[in-house]
Nucleic acid binder design. Structure first.
Length: 209
DNA sequence: GTGTGGATTATCT
DNA sequence: GATAATCCACACC
């Protein structure tokens, strides 16, 4: 049986998908084999009204074009002159909602992830942060526009049916965006050492699930 | 054609 | 905690 997530998983609001993705497995097939990890941190970008989104105000450019494609599309962008970040496109085609995958707990190919770095790095840090995750999984703009539902290079598999304790918090790196700066649109697995930024006291989620 | 700044990270103090 | 690294995409001329 295939545990790969299908189209319907992605065809709903990014706020739902962001939470549903926690505990699932992101798989990247490379020339040297499978690299994978369990998703433990996500952020939702909830559409044209979201001033922190690349699609704020309905902007549609060559960079963010993937955000407007069908749910399950992979949106990869390049930032700070050196980092890539990977998103999962949600909602219906034409509606620019997406979930930024911020962190994984590495599972398969840990030695190969490690070998791509100059300095030694602890296993739990290899995919701790959106830029590190893309570097470790060899994700760049070549994967932009790929389809998580049908790609042979990248996909997402269902995780074990486990009760996860989830923390809800503001997104990272959002400045000067009014109410959107502090909007609690980030979710992570409480206690995971691979989460990029943890909240003091790790409060329980307040938003709907 | 030019200027600006970023959904970040590594490395320094 | 502060800051350098590093460059593409975007906005605006």
């Amino acid at each position: 049986m295939s545990r790969r997530l299908g189209r319907t998983f992605y065809a709903r609001p990014s706020v739902e998908v962001a939470q549903a993705l926690l505990g699932t497995r992101l798989v990247r097939m490379t020339e040297s084999g499978r690299l994978s990890g369990i998703i433990v941190e996500t952020e939702a970008y909830i559409g044209p009204g979201d001033q922190a989104s690349h699609a704020a105000g309905g902007r549609r450019t060559s960079r963010n074009e993937s955000m407007y494609q069908r749910p399950g599309t992979c949106y990869v962008y390049f930032t700070y002159g050196m980092h890539h970040c990977m998103n999962v496109v949600c909602a219906e085609e034409g509606v620019p909602e997406a979930v930024l995958v911020r962190a994984l707990e590495p599972v398969e190919g840990i030695r190969r992830m490690q070998s791509m770095r100059d300095a030694e790095m602890k296993d739990e840090d290899l995919c701790r942060g959106p830029g590190r995750l893309c570097r470790s999984l060899q994700v760049d703009r070549k994967l932009d526009g790929d389809d998580f539902v049908s790609s042979d290079e990248i996909w997402i598999e269902a995780g074990p049916k486990a009760e996860l304790e989830i923390v809800n918090a503001p997104r990272i790196g959002i400045d000067g965006k009014g109410e959107w700066t502090l909007a609690p649109l980030r979710w992570y697995v409480k206690g995971s050492r691979s989460v990029s930024v943890r909240v003091a006291g790790d409060r329980r989620p307040s938003a709907r699930g």
